[in-house]
Simulated assay, not measured.
Amino acid sequence: MRRFRPRPLPTVITLVVLLILASLGTWQVQRLQWKNDLLQRMEERTTAEPVLLDEVRLDDPAAVAWRRVRVVGRFLASPGPPELYGVESHGGQLGSRLLGAVETADGRTLLVDRGFTPEASVPPAPPGGQVELDAILRDRSEDQQTWFLPDNDPATGHWFWIDLAELGRIFGRPLEPVALQLLPGSPGATVQAKPPRLDLPNNHLGYAITWYGLALALLLVYLVFSSERTDPRS
């Protein structure tokens, strides 16, 4: 026979840790719902019929992110070397994303992700004159340098994070807080341009199970620790 006899200090510690573990599990459940909603919204917006950019307000980037748009405008020339963003590998080729800027018919200027370009090849120049682009809007309003990203090198055209203010200075126009990611076949898109990836990591369910599992294990350990054998003869 065993009798439950809790001790004050272990009980307080267990309750605090249980609260923390349960909170972490609940937070991961909330993150799971948020991620599922985001993926669904991304899928719906990227597969919907495109709308004219002239009809889209850009002052709330999160509200229009991932929307497919048609854009009428002209590419701006970069005064220096091609602007290359990040480092990627496609089909065994090392390269970067080719950046540009487009001035729309209504006077707005947007950064443009033209697609992947191999390091060993000369980046293609943007088309001249007025063009009609097929693109996905991407929110760039919160881009900033993190501790593991190196500094950008505007002099050589190498960018490791999107600095809209500095890129706007190079292209000679202030840039909107959203960028265009060109779809394959759009004027100005590179040969290896691809649609945006929608397979964002979604491991929140596993994390939630882990935190709740630790909470349950802690509770079981506490119950065993707080029980003691009793002498049935007493």
Rank of each mutant, 00 (worst) to 15 (best):
R2H: 06
R3C: 10
P6Q: 14
L9W: 12
P10I: 15
P10V: 10
L15K: 01
V17R: 09
L21R: 05
S23Y: 11
L24R: 07
Q28G: 12
W34S: 13
W34F: 14
W34E: 15
K35E: 12
M42C: 05
M42K: 04
E43C: 03
T47M: 08
E55C: 02
V56E: 13
R57S: 12
L58Q: 07
D59Q: 07
D60Y: 01
A63W: 03
A63V: 09
A65C: 09
A65P: 09
R67G: 04
R68P: 08
V69Y: 09
R70I: 06
V71P: 14
R74T: 12
P82I: 00
P82A: 03
G86K: 06
E88I: 04
S89P: 06
R97V: 11
R97C: 01
R97K: 06
L98I: 04
A101E: 05
V102N: 08
G107P: 08
L110T: 11
V112W: 03
R114C: 00
V122T: 13
V122A: 15
P126L: 10
G129P: 13
L133F: 14
L133N: 07
R138L: 14
D139K: 12
S141H: 11
E142Q: 13
L149P: 05
P150D: 12
D151R: 07
D151K: 05
N152H: 05
F160H: 15
L164T: 10
E166C: 02
G168I: 09
G172L: 09
G172V: 12
G172Q: 00
R173G: 12
V178P: 14
A179P: 14
A179C: 10
L183R: 01
A189M: 01
T190I: 02
P195T: 04
P195F: 02
P196W: 09
N202M: 11
N203D: 09
H204A: 01
Y207T: 08
W211R: 05
Y212R: 05
Y212W: 15
G213F: 08
A215Y: 03
L216T: 10
A217R: 02
L220F: 11
T230N: 01
D231N: 05
P232S: 14
